[in-house]
């Protein structure tokens, strides 16, 4: 599912003294198959943007215009696959089934008595017919397995008895159980310790290579973006300032710093090397950095 957004704007509490413009003429295309990063500070508009992707936030109704007059050049447009979200009548249920969304700290949205029931929640909501116990169990088993958990071990447990990292994985299983084609995650690794962080990122790559064609992560961890993403968009004050592959994005160190954003460690090292006359043409993943740095030694032992 290709995502095309053009001229999106959004204002919270419009026409009140507290009106805040969260999105300001945002245009962005995310191709099917990408591992896409969305960067920016709290309040930069990134969360507002992703909530449009499964219709949790809707475009403001478009101005009425005569049938004959051509569409205005700046008319907002939002296409998610074949779903046209500019239309008032969109099948939101079908859309949400195919665009999964994992919110920040998703473990705080667990509610059921057992892990099994919680994971099955979305499955039951989205299926058109009543599922048999076997069908449900099969889907839940597979979802738990893809997030790296053993069905027989945790299915009957209360989700609240699990550790923090496990809770988060159960919560993710509860979203991917319907096998969405697009998976959007807001700060999937926030608050976890280094081990938990690594596990979650591995899990996302596993999902990307199996069930979810497109993965979109919202993050402010530059290293995470550099290591994992095919492209990343930088949001600031409701606008998209950059939309580039990490290898190019993090060459704009000055601009990013001006926006109050960091650059990944590898980019910092490359800059420090450049100042010392060593140019390293690296895509800012750790692997590439190590390889290219070691290559500098040439034949030397």
């Amino acid at each position: 599912m290709r995502i095309v957004a053009e001229h999106l704007s959004y204002t919270y509490q419009p026409k009140s003294p507290f009106a805040t413009r969260a999105l300001d003429d945002v245009s962005l295309t995310i191709e099917e198959g990408e591992f896409f990063g969305i960067l920016g500070h709290t309040g930069s508009g990134k969360s507002t943007f992703v909530q449009h992707l499964n219709g949790l936030l809707r475009l403001p109704p478009s101005r009425k215009r005569g049938k004959k007059s051509p569409p205005a050049p700046n008319e907002p447009k939002l296409l998610v696959g074949e779903f046209d979200l500019t239309q008032k009548k969109t099948d939101l249920r079908a859309l949400r089934r195919r665009v999964g969304m994992v919110f920040q700290y998703p473990e705080y949205q667990l509610f059921a008595e057992t892990v099994k029931e919680d994971v099955a929640f979305g499955l039951k909501n989205f299926s058109d017919k009543k599922l048999t116990a076997e069908e449900t169990e099969k889907a839940v088993r597979e979802a738990l397995s893809v997030v790296g958990m053993e069905y027989d071990e945790v299915a009957e447990k209360s989700p609240f008895d699990l550790s923090g990292g496990q809770k988060r994985r159960v919560a993710i299983a509860g979203v991917v159980v319907t096998r969405p084609e697009v998976l959007v995650l807001d700060e999937p690794a926030a608050g976890l310790d280094p081990l938990g962080k690594r596990e979650v990122m591995e899990l996302l790559h596993r999902l990307h290579s199996t069930w979810c064609k497109t993965v979109i992560i919202v993050s402010h961890d530059m290293d995470e973006i550099a290591e994992n993403c095919t492209r990343a968009a930088v949001f600031a004050e409701g606008k998209v300032r950059f939309c580039l592959p990490p290898a190019e994005l993090f060459r704009h160190a000055e601009e990013l710093t001006e926006l109050g954003l960091d650059i990944p460690l590898t980019a910092k090292l490359c800059r420090a090397l450049e100042r010392r006359g060593v140019v390293l043409d690296c895509d800012f993943t750790t692997e590439d950095f190590i390889r290219k740095t070691l290559a500098l030694m040439g034949g030397k032992p």
Binding site: L265, K268, L269, A272, L273, R276, G277, I290, L294
Partner: peptide, 30 residues
């Protein structure tokens, strides 16, 4: 972690936790 990986790859950088220092070390080694 990057220091350790470089050392394992045969580049004798000294352990450091400072980016500027590591860059210096890399330049020294090459």
């Amino acid at each position: 972690a990057i220091c350790k990986r470089l050392q394992a790859g045969g580049m004798p950088v000294a352990d450091t936790l400072d980016a500027e220092k590591l860059a210096e070390e890399i330049v020294r080694c090459v």
